[in-house]
Write a protein that binds this DNA or RNA. Structure first.
Length: 760
DNA sequence: GTAAGAAAAATTTTT
DNA sequence: TTTTTCTTAC
């Protein structure tokens, strides 16, 4: 195999090892994707049929790119038949073909996160719970969490740990919401994202013959980004690989940044325990970045306790040190970064696409937009509201969904009165109420409201029947015509086009463009299908594909040669010649919500590690002493993470002179925006200026008085986190904080004033 | 049933 | 600050 010569020793060894479980620990920039693509190409060249290779990636984009690369190594036609894609897309296809076995139809709808949240919100309302206490977002997260751990609604009822956690977060009714939510999804013939993994496990568990079938088909299993898999994903892989054990997982524990979504880093840390005969390969040579960048990143990640030992090194040139930029305000930060990009463009032969600005939160993009535009630098922002989340797109999709699945409750609710047709909230509530008590679908009630003794006047009843008739017609169209024709007709006949095209406002035009774009996407889908020799391109196929797409999957020609702006999360897996990591401030990066938990803090540090290791040639870190956030100016200190990097690899700002405006571009800076005048920060910590509460320190559980007796080593029981040992006590009065080790790797800092615990 | 104004909330998010 | 959700008056 001549292409094997293009690999280094460790990479080649990993590619050639295919008969035992294989763990590839791949440092940043070490050619992880290369190993995966060459491994697949190698297997194909050894005569393994393409359908026997199951390759699971974390994004559609990664799958597509990998397919392209493999296509350049082997015959393009074999590549098409690879079972390659995200967990969600691969297993949603399997679920569709086996749907009846688990009580769904093959046309089931996929609820996106907005649908789930909206349904949960509706349930909370029906249960007459306070939605301040039961925030749909939080409840959704709890349910998602349970599903990722494969805890069904039924099992949840007897899961002491989950129930306890709900009580502690003052949401004891989550268990009941979960019951209803699960039942309603099933009734609607709908699965949410988590269900796709959850029900795959159910399918395999309840139908051994089905599992056996797929075990036989998927002879080789490869998983990318294994550090970010959750338990449900782990178990799917485990089940499929259990017998033949030809499984290869690739990942980097140092880049695990999705635990807040259920990713479990122990999947990769404990792979060896699950597969004792496995072989481990470490890819440690970084081909992406200069030595300085690699060394700086290494010194940072060394501060984390939880990690596999690695020695990532670079043989590229030493390169420039990482520059740390201190600025007075977020606006100055954006200005200096933009100006730096302009300067580098002028000096070197860079393209705009060689630059990326990475931040912790999407909200930070705004000021950069402004200053980049001022300097006429083209840019592209990733994230924010994605195409498929836009209202007008979701509306159209909802029509398409309801045409195929009359049970789709969320689609129904969304469009029953859009465009407005005189079916208001009260009426809808009556219809839904009736549907629930009669145990039928809302659409059935709509078709014949009088038969169900619905308490509406004749005029309203007529409207309901009209809507029902219209949807029936759409269903007919959807079953006989292709996706493009169907969508086209629905948009015209539903009144959407009338509504969207009626005025010429900027928003309205943009909505029109979006709908056009959707239509052309559907058109493209149909053509694609026909080209590939399929006989038909029905709407159902389009919908099942589109619900798993994200913005990053749409490639835009117009995006070439632009500066990239994105969150660090979104930058995972990407690389740029020049990277600016901005907003390195306490309370922002690390996020203020993470600082009280050692585990969360380590994840933030990994996130920073990911950010730095995106850079090939230059990396610049910046922080602003004042930042406009949530409507007010906040002051903060440079991030602790900057101090985690070995100073040998940094150029630090001369903070002693920072009270004087040093930057030469003062004039430009002021002209470019003056929301607030950047103030030099004296040694004062503004947060301490808040009035001290007049009431005496509250005592909880009657322990307040005993707090003076706390010393390191004291055992306590915390209401929320369980029992732990006090490690240290800092600060005075109301500001006293303690670090507590709760075992299980969980260290937390608690503010004594608020912490509810008892001394043991 | 709708539209306009008030009030409240505002991480990260491959699917 | 902006964005979303809730109230209130027509």
């Amino acid at each position: 195999m001549n292409f094997l010569d293009e690999l280094n020793e460790a990479q080649r060894a990993a590619v050639l090892c295919n008969d035992v479980p294989t763990l590839v620990i791949a440092g940043a920039g070490s050619g992880k994707t290369r190993v995966l693509t060459y491994k697949i190409a190698y297997l194909l060249s050894q005569g393994v049929p393409s359908y026997a290779i199951l390759a699971l990636t974390f994004t559609n984009k990664a799958a597509r790119e990998m397919k392209e690369r493999i296509g350049s190594l082997v015959d393009i036609h074999t590549v098409r038949r690879l079972a390659m894609g995200t967990f969600h897309s691969v297993f949603s296809r399997i679920l569709r073909s086996e749907a009846e076995k688990i009580g769904f139809t093959s046309n089931f709808t996929i609820y996106d996160s907005a649908d789930s949240k909206s349904l949960i919100k509706a349930i909370i309302k029906e249960m007459q719970l306070d939605d301040k206490q039961y925030k749909p977002q939080n409840v959704a997260a709890r349910i998602s969490n349970a599903k990722n751990k494969l805890i069904s609604a039924q099992m949840y009822l007897s899961d002491a740990e989950m129930l306890h956690a709900d009580v502690r977060s003052r949401m004891p009714m989550v268990k009941d919401i979960y019951q209803i939510y699960a039942a309603r999804c099933k009734q609607a013939d709908a699965m949410d994202f988590d269900d796709l993994l959850f029900y795959t496990n159910v399918l395999f568990k309840q139908n051994p013959e089905v599992l056996e079938k797929y075990r036989r088909i998927f002879q080789y299993i490869l998983v990318d980004e294994y550090q970010d898999t959750n338990y449900a994903q782990y178990l799917i892989v485990q089940r499929l690989a259990e017998k033949h054990r030809r499984v290869c997982v690739v990942g980097d524990d140092a880049q695990s940044i999705y635990s807040f979504r259920g990713a479990d880093i122990s999947n990769i840390l404990h792979f060896k325990n699950v597969y004792p005969e496995s072989k481990t390969f470490k890819l440690e040579q970084n081909y992406r970045s200069t030595q300085n960048i690699v060394n700086a990143a290494n010194s940072l990640i060394r501060k984390n306790k939880n990690q596999l030992h690695k020695n990532v090194f670079s043989e590229k040139s030493e390169g420039a040190p990482i520059t740390v930029l201190s600025t007075f305000s977020d606006m100055e930060e954006s200005f200096l970064v933009s100006r730096q990009i302009a300067a580098m463009m002028a000096r070197n032969r860079y393209n705009y696409s060689d630059f990326a600005i990475l931040y912790r939160t999407n909200a930070q993009s705004r000021v950069f937009e402004e200053s980049l535009r001022k300097l006429s630098i083209p840019y592209k922002i990733y994230g924010g509201l994605s195409f498929y989340q836009r209202k007008e797109i979701k509306d159209v999709i909802a029509y398409l969904r309801l045409s195929l699945n009359k049970n789709d409750e969320e689609a129904f609710r969304r469009i029953v009165n859009y465009p407005t047709r005189g079916i208001g909230a009260t009426t809808v509530a009556k219809v839904e109420d009736c549907a629930r008590t009669q145990e039928i679908t809302a659409m059935e009630v709509m078709a014949n409201p009088l038969a169900f003794n619905l308490d509406v006047n004749a005029g309203t009843a007529k409207k309901l029947i009209a809507f029902s008739a219209m949807m029936n017609e759409f269903s007919q169209i959807a079953q006989t015509q292709d996706a493009y024709q169907t969508a086209n007709k629905i948009i015209k006949q539903s009144g959407i086009s009338e509504d969207v095209y009626k005025d010429k406002s900027v928003e309205s035009i943009s909505r029109q463009e979006n709908i056009e774009e959707l239509l052309s996407a559907i058109h493209g889908f149909v053509e694609d299908r026909l080209e590939q020799g399929e006989t038909a391109a029905p709407l159902s196929d389009f919908l099942s594909e589109v619900s798993l797409l994200t913005d990053q999957d749409k490639e835009g020609e117009e995006d070439r040669n632009k500066v990239t702006l994105m969150t660090v999360h979104a930058a995972k897996g990407l690389e740029f010649k020049n990277v600016f990591v901005v907003g390195l401030e306490e309370q922002l990066f690390p996020s203020e919500r993470s600082v009280n938990s050692e585990n969360d803090l380590e994840e933030e540090r990994r996130l920073f590690y990911v950010a730095i290791t995106r850079a090939e040639e230059h990396c610049t870190i910046s922080y602003a002493r004042s930042r406009f956030r949530n409507g007010q100016t906040n002051y903060s200190n440079p991030s602790r993470f900057i101090h985690d990097i070995d100073e040998r690899y940094l150029v630090l700002p001369d903070e002693m002179r920072s009270l004087e405006p040093r930057f030469s571009g003062l004039k430009d800076y002021q002209s470019f925006g003056n929301r607030d005048v950047a103030k030099p920060v004296s040694g004062l910590d503004f947060r301490k200026l808040k009035p001290v509460s007049a009431s005496p320190a509250r005592s909880h559980n009657g322990v307040g008085a005993q707090h003076s007796s706390l010393t390191p080593g004291t055992r306590i029981r915390h209401e929320r986190f369980g029992t732990g040992t006090i490690e240290s006590i800092n600060g005075e009065g109301d500001n006293t904080k303690i670090w507590v080790d709760f075992g299980n790797n969980e260290r937390r800092q608690l503010l004594l004033k608020f912490a509810k615990f008892t001394i043991l």
